[in-house]
């Protein structure tokens, strides 16, 4: 995984497989760290599974929804001096938090986060996805409930034309974060 955005795309699929209705993807950029939070209200994990999910060798194929995704994210975060934590409870949901120390030479670039968010929407158009990306006092924000209200019941969020428009829209929002 060359970008943090690709980890987001990968890990958020776990939430979708866990039958999440609501998903919060949050990026908080401070002076030294980037904190990524992926929080869902899916089926959650038992304490036994939770204890295993970061180990690529004991988890492969014990459940289909787990695999190398979380171990790779943990590795990427810890390589920068950061950390990964997972909170989960059956019936409540799962929250994955990864901290990257951005000044570290091994910190991957954030990458095409707009492309990631819109492909998550494309793959799961019924999901309530709330995306927030804060950098300093600036915010890039997307909420699929607002989008669906504008599109009405007939036009799916997964329509290619809608997705491509959303990608351009979100790329503009992201670019504004860098403006001084």
């Amino acid at each position: 995984m060359k970008e943090i955005a690709l980890h987001v795309l990968d890990i958020a699929q776990n939430s979708i497989s866990a039958r999440a209705v609501h998903l919060d993807v949050t990026l908080e950029e401070g002076a030294e760290a980037l904190t990524l939070t992926i929080a869902d209200d899916g089926v959650g994990m038992s304490p036994e599974l939770l204890a295993q999910v970061s180990d690529p060798f004991t988890t492969t194929r014990t459940t289909r929804k787990m695999g190398l995704g979380l171990p790779l994210l943990r590795l990427a975060a810890e390589q920068t001096g950061g950390s990964l934590s997972i909170e989960s409870a059956p019936g409540v949901g799962t929250t994955v938090t990864a901290v990257f120390l951005t000044n570290h030479i091994d910190c991957p670039p954030l990458g095409d986060i707009a492309g990631t968010v819109v492909l998550l929407i494309q793959g799961a158009p019924e999901l309530e996805l709330v995306y927030n990306h804060r950098r300093g006092d600036k915010l890039s924000h997307l909420d699929t409930r607002e989008l669906r209200a504008l599109l009405g019941p007939q036009v799916s969020l997964s329509e290619p034309e809608v997705i491509l428009w959303l990608r351009d829209y979100l790329q503009e929002q992201e670019a504004l974060l860098s403006d001084t």
Binding site: L9, D10, G67, L68, L72, G115, T116, P160, L164
Partner: peptide, 22 residues
């Protein structure tokens, strides 16, 4: 679009299909 696909570059491929289809 599992871990293997994403790591190998599935995101730009999916994007390209959406662009061509649109």
């Amino acid at each position: 679009m599992a871990t293997c696909g994403i790591a190998a570059g599935a995101r730009p491929v999916l994007n390209a299909f959406l662009e061509e289809v649109a």
